[in-house]
Structures are given as structure tokens and as C-alpha cells.
Write a protein that binds this DNA or RNA. Structure first.
Lengths: 150, 150
DNA sequence: TTATCAGTAACAACATCTATGACTAACGAG
DNA sequence: CTCGTTAGTCATAGATGTTGTTACTGATAA
């Protein structure tokens, strides 16, 4: 009896990489805490477009993780020490989507199952957030090593 | 200083609901363990298309959670007692995608950050799986109550 | 033999994500 | 004060996933 192939688990172009991008940005900023980095500079490091960086920077700024300055000599820097920034804050700053979704059903048995599932999904998301709370930006920077000075 | 609006966290049409759909199906099958349910019947309960159900059933069958039979009087039923099926098995059966993705970067500092992040993402996924291990299908069925007999 | 049902392929519709160009506002340099 | 640089945002294109749907094939019981 033939079964259909597995769903591909390969990386796809439209995948959501905001959380990882946010972490990347903060790691780069943490490397030189006193320097204002431009979005163009950050974008070059991550091989992407400055607008993509600015979108994530905007979310990080909203969460008070970075400060930005316009005009020439402008750019972005960390708003507080990397020691006091956890990956959970980064996650919550850039990602507001649920981890899982339930199909449309509000009544009958499926409705009740959805309520139960949604409760579990909240717990699962909190579990992930707790996991991310365990790592500070400073710890991550230390783990990957400082970038080579030029 | 104006900041862009938050990413919408509203439910969108193309959201991945396979895990929840799989749980729904198994709950319905668990309600009458000895009866073969047709995909059309299951689809009516979930207000969706029989093919959508059969796609998920196919994954569940691959994981030995259900058995199906073709032909008239055919259909699907649980392959083992609902007491011995955890939601973690359902999750792994229908969802092979990572929880998070990293942007393209394999060298330099971003490359190292990606390695560290990917490790954390695996841990986060395992954390979710452990959470789902804590609930059996039987417990879920008991919690939502048996469906009203007609 | 025939009707029923699983299994699958193919396609449309819809939604998100990144990538990109264009525009506005802020702001420092001269 | 003027000008160039940079953040912040909008709009759109291209790629991709997911559901919904039709159509087809194969198995199987009546």
C-alpha cells in the first residue's frame, strides 16, 4: 500500500527568519556597544537588504532593546548591556505569531478540542520562551566569539 | 517618532493546522474505537474537505497510529488504544517542519550564530515535544467529554 | 460486476516572507 | 541655511506553503 511522501522539511525561501535575524543584529551590535551601526552595514554582514534589517530594528526598538539615530553619523546601538538582554525578549519583540493553529471549529466536540489544544499551545509557547530566557545575549556572544577586528 | 505596526498575529487562511487536525481526527476515532470512520464522515465533523482529512490520515497511518481499509464498509480506526497514544506522537507524525528558521549564512560570525541558534531551536522543539508527551489521547478525550450519542 | 472508499496527483486561491525600489522625515556637516 | 546621509515606511514582485477542490487510480465488499 503506497503512502504519500513526507512533507519536506527543507528550508524554504519564504520561511520566517525574523527571530534569528534579530539575534544576529543584536550580536553584531553587542560586538561594539559604543558604535552606531548603519542598517546598510548590518545588511552586508547578513547578506540581505537594509530594509529587511530596518524592519527588524524597528521591532527591536519598540521593545527597547536598541536605540536608533537618524541623519549622518546615525545608526543603531544596544539600549542596554548585552548581559541584561535574553533571547526571550528578542523573540517576543519580533515574533507575535502563535506556534500552532487550530482549524475553524467553535461548536460541538471539535470546538471543545480546539479549546483544549489552544490551552496546550499557550503552554508550549511559554515552554519555548522559558528556554530562550535561559540565554542572554552576552552568553551567546561569548559562545560564538568576538568578531575578528580589522 | 513613528514605528511600524506590529506584525499581525491574526489567524490566516494558509496557516498550518495539520497537527490540530490530526488530533481532531484521532479524538473522533477514539470516541468509537471499533467503528471504521470514512474520511467523508470525519470531514463533515471538521467542516472541511475529505481529501484534507485523507492527507492527514496518511501521515497518521505512516506513524502506525491508525489503520485504514479500502472499499465499501471501509474507513479508518485507531491502530492502538487511545491510552497509549501521546500528542507528541501525533505531532511528530504530521509535522516535520522546524519551529524556527535561520537566515542564509554559513561563514563568519553570522555562520557561528546560526549554528548556535539551530542548536537552541532543536532544544526548543524537544521542549515542545516533551510537553506534548504529557498528554495521551485518552486523557484529552476524557477532558473534552464523549460526543453526544444520537 | 459494480459501487464505495482510500490514496494521490494536480491545480486554484490565499496568505506569509524576503527582496527591492521609492519616498518622507530627521539631523549632522559644512 | 543647504545638502547629503540615514532611519522609517509603503508598495510591489517573486517564491513558497497550506488549504480546498476536482479528478483519477486501485482495492475491496456486496
Amino acid at each position: 500500500m503506497n503512502l504519500r511522501p513526507l512533507y519536506d522539511s527543507v528550508r524554504f525561501m519564504a520561511a520566517n527568519t525574523r527571530f534569528a535575524t534579530g539575534v544576529h543584529i543584536l550580536v553584531l551590535l553587542a560586538a561594539e556597544p559604543d558604535k552606531l551601526q548603519t542598517s546598510t552595514n548590518l545588511a552586508e554582514h547578513l547578506h540581505t537588504n537594509p530594509v529587511v534589517i530596518r524592519r527588524v530594528l524597528s521591532s527591536l526598538q519598540r521593545a527597547d532593546l536598541i536605540v536608533s539615530q537618524k541623519g549622518p553619523t546615525g545608526g543603531s546601538r544596544l539600549a542596554k548591556p548585552s548581559k541584561s538582554i535574553t533571547l526571550a525578549e528578542v523573540y517576543k519583540a519580533v515574533e507575535s505569531n502563535p506556534l500552532f493553529y487550530t482549524p475553524d471549529a467553535t461548536s460541538g466536540l471539535p470546538g471543545k478540542v480546539n479549546v483544549a489544544l489552544d490551552r496546550m499551545f499557550v503552554i508550549a509557547k511559554n515552554c519555548v520562551i522559558e528556554e530562550f530566557k535561559g540565554t542572554t545575549l552576552a552568553q551567546l556572544v561569548k559562545k560564538v566569539g568576538k568578531p575578528a577586528k580589522k
